[in-house]
Design a protein around this nucleic acid. Structure first.
Lengths: 208, 208
DNA sequence: ATCGAATCTTGACAATGTCAGGATCAAAAA
DNA sequence: TTTTTGATCCTGACATTGTCAAGATTCGAT
């Protein structure tokens, strides 16, 4: 950014070294992913979007799986941000906060469809990588916390409460994934408000 | 099969024309899909597996999306077969038959993981194609029928019953998808019998 | 028996992921 | 200040992929 202009300018910034290419590549990757979908994702398209050579990403992420793994970690930030936004606008009692988690889950799927697939249904991410496993566990912990507050019991010590956790996760995830896949035709064409009411009713089928 | 052996033998059958290449390609495609996963799926690998030239599939399916769409239709046959197998071994009352639908759903996901993804979470299938839309609707009708038998009301005329349909679908689909993605660690390492008990408990959270 | 259409092959092209080797730059070492 | 070392980024190459065009082969109807 602050470097003097050199003769050749292989990058937008005019410097041979980019400065923060890793972050720029992640941003470009998110753009390419949302535009082309996960099956049309291309490493070279990411490089072009970032204005660097086609082999540049390898130095920061290794291969495609490495880049997609790092991008999935970013996806979890978007995911938890969507949930926290819902929680901030919801009443502070346990059950409203729990419902907000579910609505945020669906929000994320609808606002970032390709990222949602990358995070939850891709073979090209490596969950053994700590940079991805950590936010994934954080997101799960939010669900466990919410359930603990509603049920009044720690799911890690009470099996029935852990069943509640898994049931809530499965229900909301299935709803989000089917919506994302366009498999719930009538729901897709509703207004946001209408759809939200139906979603609340569906999730309301979750009882003990 | 019954043709006389010709001099050159570009195909396994020894004939220039294969006879039923379309079916052979579908079979090969299913093999390649389960071996390489959906993201490693390759048209040329399918052709090689079937013993024909790399461009042969185009004459029967157009492009990759065409082949995958036809393969997804096959997937729905596997899917409904898994459900019917469960129903055949279940008690004949409405609620047991409904539970069997769910268990068959999960069976399909675990027995055909890549096919499951192709059917439910792929951008490369065309649901406007009648050959795919038809079995998809058939599968949905099985769910509607099951719910009608349990609730005693037609979901197409009663909104609450349709909510039941969607809730059951979302719950079971989410469970199957998360299991398929390996995101439910503890459940994965259980024996089939143990896992089935937990699954029944989770789905049991579905009440009205 | 012949002709047209369907079936399948061969060859080519652009695009892709990945690797090897070289160019450039920043910052520590001298 | 100069040198050096390692990180950063580029160029070029290769095998693989999907798709198209054109030719070869076979089937079926006339």
């Amino acid at each position: 950014m602050s470097k003097t202009e050199t003769t050749k300018k292989p990058t937008k910034a005019g410097t041979y070294h980019h400065g923060d290419l890793r972050a720029a590549l992640l941003e470009a990757a998110e753009t390419v992913l949302e535009e082309n979908g996960i099956e049309g994702f291309s490493l070279r398209a990411v490089a072009k979007q970032a204005g660097v050579s086609h082999a540049a990403p390898a130095h920061h992420f290794g291969d495609t799986a490495g880049l997609l793994t790092a991008l999935a970690a970013v996806g979890y930030q978007r995911f938890m941000a969507a949930q926290e936004a819902r929680q901030a606008n919801a009443e502070k009692n346990a059950s409203s906060q729990m419902q907000a988690l579910g609505l945020g889950y669906v929000d994320f799927a609808l606002q970032h469809p390709a990222l949602f697939r990358l995070v939850f249904s891709s073979d090209r991410t490596n969950y053994e990588d700590e940079t991805l496993a950590k936010p994934a566990n954080q997101a799960f912990e939010k669900l466990v916390d919410g359930t603990r507050n509603v049920a009044g019991i720690d799911p890690y010590t009470d099996n029935e409460a852990m069943i509640d956790v898994l049931a809530a996760w499965a229900m909301v995830h299935g709803l989000a994934d089917l919506l994302n896949a366009g498999r719930l035709g009538p729901l897709q064409r509703m207004s946001d408000a209408e759809r939200e009411e139906v979603i609340k009713k569906i999730v309301g089928r979750l009882r003990r």
